[in-house]
């Protein structure tokens, strides 16, 4: 039971990170209707920028951890958001009204570019950082000596996710930008006729998605203590799986999917085999889609005849 509780905690933390990335996929899909294959790499870039900012701050002699984290968060969000904006501008905007497969291939190309860009710029080797946030709480000490722990970093990851999710839900539901985004999602032509700046709204969608991915990248760095140029691919596929599992286009669905994928992976590794954790996640995705072709919270597609 204790073991299970511990795995549950670990799974939820991992799931929060997936969820943050998945929101970026689902937002872009909702508005532009394309899979942004480069999004996983945006997450990776976010992790790298967080790492570099952290190193610089430390070498300047800054010691207050909360201040460092805040600066790292802001810098990483800002620069990564610019990456998101640039990718949309270069690779997707020219293909806005094109055939469906062209932007997808362009996105795959962009993903190759970003992966290899950071490989060339920062080297192929894994970049480890010493634990930045240490300590935690012992929740329960079992009879067998097994200790259920909740580390500070886990708390930070979950709290950050919840806060961002609340902020983001508010943004989509109650701001001008959110309204524009929802309008573009329904009907871009009509939205532009009613004075919504479609280009700007789409750009902002990419910017917000990238900023959230940057947070996820930073959390990943803090939690696992390393980044490497290839981590975007695997995390990207997982997050995309999460977005689809939850029902692509649905924001709560993305978060739910993220948590589920995180839990499945962690529990499978804990009870069955680590090697097959991804196989388990993908298989569950396929099984869910057989019964719910539009995911858990996706709108069922009504066939118009």
């Amino acid at each position: 039971m204790d073991y299970f509780a511990q795995q549950l905690i670990n799974g939820l933390v991992l799931g929060s990170i997936y969820g943050l990335i998945a929101i970026g996929y689902t937002m872009v899909y909702g508005i532009v209707g394309m899979i942004n294959f480069a999004h996983g790499d945006i997450f990776m870039i976010g992790g790298f920028i967080a790492l570099i900012t952290f190193l610089i701050l430390v070498s300047f002699g800054l010691t207050a951890i909360p201040l460092i984290l805040l600066i790292v968060l802001l810098v990483s969000m800002a620069i990564t958001a610019l990456y998101g904006w640039t990718v949309e501008r270069i690779a997707y905007r020219p293909l806005r009204h094109s055939f469906r497969l062209a932007p997808m291939l362009s996105a795959i190309g962009m993903s190759f570019v970003l992966t290899n860009y950071s490989q060339v710029a920062q080297g192929a080797r894994v970049k480890p950082v010493p634990p930045i946030i240490t300590g935690g709480y012992t929740l329960h000490e079992g009879a067998g000596g097994f200790v259920v722990q909740l580390s500070n970093i886990q708390i930070i990851v979950v709290i950050t996710t919840v806060v961002l999710l609340a902020l983001f839900t508010w943004l989509v539901s109650s701001t001008r930008l959110g309204r524009d985004m929802r309008a573009c999602e329904q009907d871009q032509t009509m939205a532009s006729l009613l004075g919504v700046d479609v280009d700007r709204t789409i750009s902002m969608t990419f910017v917000i998605g990238a900023a959230l991915a940057a947070v996820a990248g930073m959390m990943y760095l803090l939690y696992y203590g390393l980044v490497d140029f290839f981590m975007g691919f695997v995390a990207g596929i997982k997050a995309f799986t999460a977005a689809v599992l939850g029902g692509i286009g649905s924001l709560p669905g993305a978060m739910l999917g993220g948590l589920l994928i995180g839990l499945i992976e962690t529990l499978w590794s804990a009870y069955f085999s680590v090697e097959y954790k991804d196989v388990a996640a993908f298989s569950i995705l396929i099984v869910v889609l057989i019964f719910l072709p539009t995911g858990l919270l996706g709108r069922p597609e009504v066939e118009k005849v």
Binding site: S98, P103, S106, G109, M110, V113, L114, N116, Q119
Partner: peptide, 21 residues
């Protein structure tokens, strides 16, 4: 060498923009 995939990815983006169909 190591720039190969970088160039390849860029080529993919450019080709799609040039000839989406």
């Amino acid at each position: 060498d190591q720039y190969r995939m970088l160039v390849f990815g860029m080529a993919m983006v450019l080709l799609m923009i040039w000839r989406p169909r």
